[in-house]
Write a protein that binds this DNA or RNA. Structure first.
Lengths: 336, 336
DNA sequence: TGACATATTCGAAACGTTTAGATTAGCTTC
DNA sequence: GAAGCTAATCTAAACGTTTCGAATATGTCA
């Protein structure tokens, strides 16, 4: 900028004013400055700018797993909206590990991000303290962390799972296996509550043995499903609490020599773009990823715009049960 | 940091030395400083640090589409390696649009990233100039851009596709449809060359009408496949040049009332984690995503470590044809 | 013509670090 | 005991911006 000022024969203050349009500059000087900029190939140094202004125009985005299509779908729309608003996005993954989460958030805070969008892993109170201290706008997505009073956009997980289980019950299923996500997350908890609620409504006795923890991971879900499938009286249907886990469930079913939906019905949280064209065509709960992303981005932009301390807003969206062909009416097992 | 220095009763230089370990500090002062840091809750300001040192410890990562599982797999391992080395990653998406690409790169350059990992969109010479001017270490992944002399890690696309087409030819197929990616990319070109090469080797006359551009996008691929399927003498097999497009191909097949593999064989570039458990079990070319990511990260770290101007290294990896059940031996159409 | 408002432009002090070079203190060594 | 080292610490100048208040120029009005 000094070089520009020198070749244009003006002061740096004027260059700054011209570049940012923060103060009137005569067209004469503006012309000279623009020429100088073009000649030198000057680019404003965002780091120095950030140091002075205290704003990096960057948002930190913390999710569990970049390999999970649900998160990437949401990330894609968040990025889109924020870029349009002049913000860059710094993406970090926690692998569902609270310790890594803290590390990543610390890294983002070091870099002075202006705001944070987080899908919290675990239910650590550490997060609460860290965010308190950071004192920057934060919005929670997908999951909420107990005790953190922040803007959030989440799904009505309980309602959504209840719909799915109701559907299975309606097909006559009574012994329904449930592969749960980590119970350290609000999603894990909420979805399980939906399962339990639906069973209770239907007057079906809850059987602890039918609920297994898959930690939202394919591998863990595979093992969990295996345990379900080797039971003497195995479930006639299995519900998986997310997209990654249902792959594990399907692999377990295959490895046990069973077929879906002939031998066992399967349904899961999160939709797949290919579900319509690959068999079994999975019956899923589709999340409104577009809406989730847009709301999250908008919430953070609002907070960034007016620093007013309006009370946190929680946006709750609904999942949509998408019935395909992976669930069959219950039929008594012939000879197991 | 001044606060820390003040409460510890030392100079900022000493605090800096203690924090960074760049100069010896007596254990006496080190203790006082550590206490002061704990008391105040001091965190080093990375922005100021970057301004002074000229390094942001951040790598820009530019890909086409965060929604594409191939890219996210690669991104995941790159992030992992770079984080371990103390670098943050800033992820940007171009949507295969050279203009957006330039914008995103500009944004990263503004923020003074220390290096760039790019899967270039288009074959613009603009990119070349921009990178030249930026003068920071760059590694290209997945695709190479003509005329850019940079480190790169790519696949032997031609060889890989040739293997797949050889396989189809071996099954007796003669009219093989090809859904191509954008021919502005080296991957689009290389994969098409593999198709053409295999056909030539087999002595099969090339038919332009069998090659359609799907631009690596599901939607475009759907339309492209539709054109193939309404031909009077439609192909008996279709190869899709990436993962997103094969979904479009399958949808087209379904919408035409056909079945895979009964009526038509399908194969594609890029593997799916669920391909083993959903029918038709796709025969695919799996890319070594782990290796791609590790090499890319290592190349950039090497460049960052020694600024030596060693000639660019190009790492070429091999794809692996994974035969499943989506291709059948050719049988003459009965009554089409 | 002098006083005053208005419109531009400029000088210089931040922002929070790093770091080269100066300073000081404490030891050796002759 | 002076000279010379070494080790630890400090002072102060950067890094490239933004921004406040001062300075300058131009025009207007009495």
């Amino acid at each position: 900028m000094l070089d520009v000022a020198a070749t244009a024969g003006v002061s740096v203050a004027t260059v700054s004013a011209a570049v940012n349009g923060t103060a009137p500059v005569s067209s004469e000087l503006r012309g000279r400055i623009e020429n100088a900029i073009a000649a030198i190939g000057y680019k404003r140094n965002a780091v120095a700018r950030s140091l002075k202004t205290g704003a990096t125009k960057t948002i930190g985005l913390v999710i569990a797993d970049i390999t999970n299509p649900f998160f990437t779908d949401v990330v894609a729309v968040i990025q889109d909206v924020l870029h349009r608003a002049g913000y860059a996005v710094m993406l970090c993954c926690t692998d569902e590990d609270p310790e890594q989460q803290e590390e990543q958030i610390s890294l983002l805070l070091d870099r002075m991000v202006d705001g944070l969008i987080i899908a919290p892993a675990g239910n650590d109170h550490a997060l609460e303290r860290v965010l308190q201290r950071a004192g920057i706008p934060t919005v929670l997505i997908d999951r909420i962390s107990h005790g953190i009073a922040a803007d959030a956009v989440v799904l009505d997980n309980q309602r959504a799972v209840q719909d799915a289980i109701d559907y299975l019950v309606g097909l006559g299923h009574r012994r329904i296996g449930y592969i749960s996500g980590s119970l350290d997350t609000s999603t894990g908890l909420g979805r399980l509550a939906g399962y339990c609620g639906a069973l209770e409504n239907a007057g079906i006795q809850h059987d602890d043995a039918l609920v297994r923890i898959g930690n939202f991971r394919e591998k863990d879900a595979y093992n969990a499903a295996m345990q379900l499938l080797v039971m003497p009286e195995r479930p006639s249907a299995i519900f998986s609490a997310n997209n990654l886990m249902v792959i594990g469930v399907m692999k377990a079913i295959r490895d046990m020599g069973l077929r879906c939906p002939d031998d066992i019905s399967v349904s899961s949280f999160d939709d797949f773009p290919w579900a319509d064209v690959f068999q079994p065509n999975l019956t899923t709960i589709a999340q409104p990823v577009q809406a989730i992303g847009e709301h999250a981005a908008q919430l953070i932009l609002d907070r960034l715009a007016d620093r007013s301390d309006r009370p946190p807003r929680q946006i709750v969206l609904a999942g949509r049960l998408t019935i395909r062909a992976s669930c069959r009416p219950f039929s008594a097992p012939e000879a197991r």
